[in-house]
């Protein structure tokens, strides 16, 4: 059976790169004695795939990976036994059973939520923060917001505005910008790129490391066009499950 695990990264864990996070979870799952399904052959490895790499230094409460297991305890039990194996800064927050035929997380990602604040010790430009909602409104009211990105072969120009689904001051902290932007293998938008464009539009020059970014959630797009969180594509496990044939059945 396939399950989806939700996790977060804070503090020192923010500096672990994507490959390290993958190896880290393989070991954590072995420590927790989660009955993983392994590939065959001489160097068997667990069948797992991560939703979306997170940039180095970013914190998150909305990371996911999918995992093939042969048995599952209930969601709270699985979360607890994995949480007991976490190093500082890593947290496991959800465990969902996925439908039999589901696409891997990385293939369905359509959007991501971010909270962007000004890093401690960095300047908050008065021109923007005097009226943050107004500044955002003016930024989004432009006809176009072209950003360029260099690839190995050429330079690609993209209009950011249609890829920004939501942008507003955060409810909890009015000096933090909440962003919902396009994410995934096509049209992935890095929140820093949006913020830099926003700063420049407002006549400010962003300095390196100005923005502290936290990823909040990852979404897929449902058939009706709404965004559903990756977690909600599966269901909580309420009774222990096993793939092994039960007695009498075999």
């Amino acid at each position: 059976m396939k399950v989806r695990v939700k996790f977060g990264k804070d503090g020192s864990a923010r500096f672990a790169g994507h490959l390290d996070v993958m190896r880290y979870f393989q070991k954590a799952l072995r420590r927790a004695e989660v009955p993983m399904v392994y590939t065959h052959g001489f160097s068997p490895h667990p069948v797992m795939s991560f939703a979306q790499p997170l940039g180095l230094g970013l914190s998150s409460e909305g990371e996911y990976f999918d995992l093939e297991v042969s048995e599952s305890l209930t969601t709270p039990e699985e979360v607890a036994r994995l949480q007991a194996q976490m190093a500082e800064g890593f947290s496991v927050t959800d465990w969902r059973l996925l439908p039999e035929k589901s696409q891997p997380a990385m293939a369905v990602i359509a959007a991501a939520d971010y909270a962007v604040s000004i890093r401690e010790g960095h300047e908050k430009p008065a021109g923007i923060f005097r009226d943050l909602p107004g500044a955002i409104a003016r930024f989004r009211a432009q006809e176009k917001c072209l950003v360029t990105r260099e690839t190995k072969k050429n330079t690609i120009e993209t209009d950011l505005l249609p890829l920004i689904y939501e942008m507003r001051p955060d409810e909890a902290d009015p000096e933090t910008v909440f962003l919902r932007v396009s994410a995934g293998s096509v049209d992935n938008v890095r929140p820093e790129v949006v913020m830099e464009a926003f700063w420049r539009f407002a006549g400010c020059e962003p300095a390196p490391f100005d923005f502290a970014v936290r990823r909040l959630e990852l979404y897929a797009r449902a058939e009706d066009g709404r965004f559903v969180t990756l977690a909600d594509m599966g269901v909580p496990v309420t009774e222990p499950l096993s793939d092994a044939p039960t007695e009498g059945e075999a």
């Binding site: 503090g11 020192s12 500096f15 790169g17 420590r31 230094g57 500082e88 890093r119 490391f209």
Partner: peptide, 24 residues
């Protein structure tokens, strides 16, 4: 834990987890 190096420094060097500790 409070880290001895700032985010700016950690993000300016190769392999910052060399300096952060907090391993399992």
């Amino acid at each position: 834990r409070q880290l001895a190096l700032s985010d700016e420094i950690l993000l300016s060097v190769d392999k910052p987890t060399r300096y952060t500790g907090g391993e399992f």
